[in-house]
């Protein structure tokens, strides 16, 4: 049955019947708690992924690897990150599997890509809260592509380390949207710090954003944060 399903993958495409692939679904569910079965299934999926398949079939495989993928998947999927037709579905896996190799693949792809694909990789590093990416992302805050800079700011806010906060505070982007993202990211960092009872660090961020040169929306958000810090201290 599983062999038939993998055979069906070769002709699978948009518009074909999904039913023949059901054994793969079954195998994914059955792999829970069975490392050997999971590893074997992952290997078969990766082998298929490297064959001549439709985009839809490759996407299907990536969806399954999101559940059973390991570091072994990261090595193969790294090669798809720079391909604009497959980068998203490669990130579909690499953003979610916990293996450090997945984060490494994303970091290594960063200097190789540009435009929307780069924004996607940045977003996935942020979603993974990858502290090792802070240096590279900080450098992108001044990127000539404002959309890339904005994405980097948002990702740094998700990561929220001390170095990420420093980079965001030092950023002086010219594009309004990037500045808005950098401020929002700082507020995100402050909320995370306060949730971890790091009141002084959170308060410093809020105070820096409460100055008169900020928009009223930001000043209000910062003031709310300052009051939240006070309540936390009480």
């Amino acid at each position: 049955m599983l062999n038939d399903a993998f055979a069906a993958l070769k002709s699978y495409d948009w518009g074909t019947d999904l039913a023949p692939l059901a054994p793969i679904e079954d195998a994914v569910a059955a792999a829970h708690g069975n490392a050997e079965a999971g590893k074997e299934l992952e290997a078969r999926l990766l082998t298929a992924l490297q064959g001549e398949l439709s985009r839809d079939a490759k996407d299907y495989i990536c969806r399954k690897l999101t559940i059973v993928g390991t570091a072994a998947s990261a090595t193969i999927l790294a090669g798809l990150l720079t391909d604009e037709n497959h980068s998203h579905m490669a990130r579909f896996v690499l953003e979610r599997i916990p293996a450090p190799a997945a984060a490494q693949a994303l970091r290594e792809a960063l200097p190789k890509v540009s435009g929307k694909v780069k924004i996607g990789v940045i977003g996935s590093l942020g979603a993974r809260r990858d502290a090792a990416a802070v240096s590279a992302l900080s450098g992108l805050l001044a990127d000539g592509d404002a959309a890339v800079a904005r994405a980097a700011a948002t990702a740094l806010g998700d990561i929220g380390t001390v170095d990420a906060v420093k980079a965001l505070q030092a950023a002086r982007p010219s594009a309004a949207a990037t500045m808005q993202a950098a401020i929002d990211a700082q507020l995100t960092c402050a909320e995370a710090l306060l949730a971890e009872n790091k009141r002084a660090e959170a308060l410093a961020i809020y105070k820096s954003l409460a100055s008169d040169d900020r928009s009223k929306l930001v000043r209000l958000a910062a003031t709310r944060g300052i009051l939240a810090c006070a309540a936390k201290n009480a």
Partner: peptide
Amino acid sequence: DETANRLVDRARREPWQ
């Protein structure tokens, strides 16, 4: 539950975050 945690969210197609 490492597997279930993978499904808490999903990667968004670029350029959306």
